Simulated scan of single mutants.
Amino acid sequence: MSAGLLAKPQMRGLLAKRLRFHIIGAFAVSLGVVALYKFGVAEPRKRAYADYYKNFDSMKEYEAMREAGVFQSVRSKGQ
Score class of each variant (00 low, 15 high):
Ser30Gly: 03
Val41Thr: 12
Tyr53Lys: 04
Val41Arg: 04
Glu61Ile: 06
Asp51Ser: 05
Ala50Met: 07
Tyr53Cys: 05
Val33Glu: 04
Ala26Tyr: 05
Val29Glu: 01
Phe56Pro: 00
Lys46Arg: 12
Ala50Asn: 08
Lys54Leu: 11
Ala26Trp: 09
Ala50Ile: 07
Phe21Arg: 10
Lys60Met: 03
Ala35Pro: 00
Asp57Leu: 02
Gly32Phe: 13
Phe39Lys: 06
Phe39Pro: 00
Ile24Cys: 01
Phe56Lys: 08
Ala35Leu: 13
Val41Ser: 05
Val29Ser: 08
Lys46Val: 07
Lys60Gln: 10
Phe21Tyr: 08
Gly40Arg: 04
Val29Asp: 01
Asn55Pro: 00
Val29Met: 07
Arg47Asn: 15
Glu61Val: 13
Lys38Cys: 08
Phe56Gly: 01
Ala42Met: 12
Phe39Leu: 07
Met59Gln: 12
Asp51Ile: 01
Gly32Leu: 11
Ser30Leu: 11
Ser58Ala: 13
Pro44Leu: 09
Tyr49Met: 09
Pro44Asn: 10
Leu36Asn: 03
Ala42Arg: 13
Lys60Ser: 09
Tyr53Trp: 13
Arg45Cys: 03
Tyr37Trp: 12
Ala26Cys: 11
Gly25Asp: 02
Ile24Trp: 00
Phe39Ala: 01
Ala48Asn: 01
Glu43Val: 15
Pro44Ser: 08
Ser58His: 07
Gly40Tyr: 05
Ala50Gln: 12
Asp51Arg: 07
Arg47Gly: 06
Val41Lys: 03
Gly32Lys: 09
Lys38Ser: 14
Tyr53Val: 11
Gly40Cys: 06
Phe27Gln: 05
Val41Cys: 03
Ala48Glu: 14
Ala48Ile: 01
Ala42Gln: 13
Lys54His: 11
Ile23Leu: 08
Met59Thr: 13
Lys38His: 14
Glu61Phe: 03
Lys60Trp: 00
Tyr37Pro: 00
Lys54Trp: 05
Ala35Arg: 10
Asn55Tyr: 09
Leu36Ser: 12
Glu61Cys: 02
Phe56Asn: 08
Asp57Thr: 03
Glu43His: 05
Ala42Thr: 15
Gly40Gln: 08
Ala48Phe: 00
Tyr52Cys: 04
Lys60Glu: 15
Gly40Val: 11
Ala50His: 04
Lys60Thr: 11
Arg47Val: 15
Gly25Lys: 07
Leu31Pro: 00
Ala26Asn: 10
Lys46Ala: 14
Ala26His: 05
Val34Cys: 07
Lys60Ala: 14
Val41Met: 06
Gly32Trp: 10
Pro44Met: 09
Gly32Pro: 04
Ile23His: 02
Ser30Arg: 03
Tyr53Pro: 02
Arg47His: 12
Phe27Ile: 15
Ala28Lys: 14
His22Met: 11
His22Leu: 14
Lys60Phe: 01
Asp57Val: 02
Ile23Gly: 00
Tyr37Lys: 03
Phe39Val: 07
Tyr52Phe: 14
Val41Tyr: 07
Asp57Gln: 06
Phe27Tyr: 03
Arg45Leu: 10
Lys38Val: 15
Val34Gly: 02
Tyr53Asn: 09
Val34Lys: 01
Gly25Leu: 08
Lys38Met: 12
Tyr52Ile: 11
Phe56Leu: 08
Arg45Asp: 07
Leu36Val: 15
Lys46Thr: 10
Val33Gly: 04
Gly32His: 09
Gly32Ala: 11
Phe39His: 13
